[in-house]
């Protein structure tokens, strides 16, 4: 009899401990998840390193189509820029030089201009003598798909088509060379 009561009491105690632990765990997990989401909300929420780079199709100044998926097997150095953005202009010549060095190793540079006129982009390309394709995102749809906020932003896409790295702000020539090395196919 006494034994039975004791056993019952023990069971009840265990049940209570489990119940309380589960309820607390669920609530704490919910709070943790909320804080995590709030902490990451300000960053790029749609795109993260390791994600598949969203495919797009844009036209360059010569009228050629450039589809990101066509470059699979190559590393793609995706640079978002505008003529009014001074750091963008500063890093262009370095990008152009490094493109010369890496283009034979399977690294492609695509400079995506944000919704400016053909004239402005063309004069800029002529002024800096850019040899890589410059495409214009007329409706800002690629910018939106990549959730680009500040300019310049550079997205490194590896030969598998995944995002290797996202760089916001100006890059030095050394940076650029290092990044191109990162996405160079084996």
């Amino acid at each position: 009899m006494g034994e039975q009561v004791k056993q019952k009491k023990k069971n009840k105690k265990q049940k209570r401990a489990v119940m309380r632990t589960v309820i607390l765990a669920v609530l704490v997990a919910a709070i943790g998840y909320t804080i995590y989401n709030s902490a990451t909300a300000k960053d790029v929420t749609l795109l993260e390193v390791g994600d598949k780079a969203p495919d797009f199709a844009l036209v360059d100044l010569e009228g050629n189509d450039h589809k990101l998926s066509d470059y699979e097997g190559q590393g793609v150095f995706l640079n978002f820029w505008g003529t009014w953005c001074k750091p963008c202009a500063k890093e262009m010549p370095a990008m152009d030089r490094q493109y010369e060095a890496f283009s034979n190793d399977g690294v492609q540079v695509l400079a995506v201009n944000i919704a400016q006129s053909d004239f402005e982009v063309q004069s800029f390309a002529d002024q800096y003598g850019l040899s890589f394709p410059v495409v214009i995102d007329k409706t800002k749809s690629v910018m939106t798909a990549y959730n680009i906020r500040p300019l310049p932003t550079t997205v490194l896409v590896n030969p598998e088509g995944n995002i290797e790295r996202i760089i916001t702000g100006e890059m030095t020539e050394q940076d650029i060379a290092g990044f191109m090395e990162e996405i160079k196919p084996e």
Partner: peptide, 22 residues
């Protein structure tokens, strides 16, 4: 409303609501 401690406090209030009620 996005600071960690404020969210944590609101969460603690939720915990308090659940447990005190139960």
């Amino acid at each position: 409303y996005s600071s960690y401690w404020f969210i944590a406090l609101v969460g603690m209030l939720a915990i308090s609501l659940v447990i005190a009620s139960l």
